[in-house]
């Protein structure tokens, strides 16, 4: 929110908490945020597949979900979307 919207911290925390459906204090709580991250597919620490497993989005996969959940344009996501999946297997 700071990077693409220039939003100051208090406003940014309130915006993100609202979009995630949690309280602002929950953002400071990794135990709550782990569940939120997993549910919404926002990525996280990998740690040998014990925390974020192969069914959880990572890297740019998670960025797709972050862009959608927070309703912000994310440049690399837009470019990935434009470049990848242009043709389905049946068309190749």
């Amino acid at each position: 929110m700071q990077i693409t919207r220039g939003m100051r911290l208090t406003e940014a925390k309130t915006y993100v908490a609202g979009k995630l459906g949690v309280s602002v204090l929950d953002l400071s709580d990794p135990t709550v945020m782990l569940d939120v991250r997993k549910e919404l597919g926002l990525g996280g620490i990998l740690e040998s597949g014990e925390i974020t497993d192969i069914d959880d989005p990572m890297g740019i996969e998670a960025k797709f979900n972050i862009a959608a959940v927070l309703d912000v344009p994310v440049n690399c996501v837009e470019r990935f979307r434009a470049k990848a999946g242009r043709r389905r297997p049946a068309q190749i």
Partner: peptide, 10 residues
């Protein structure tokens, strides 16, 4: 790098 990271990258 964009493929394997999730945090905003500049």
């Amino acid at each position: 790098a964009q493929f394997v990271t999730t945090a905003p990258l500049g």
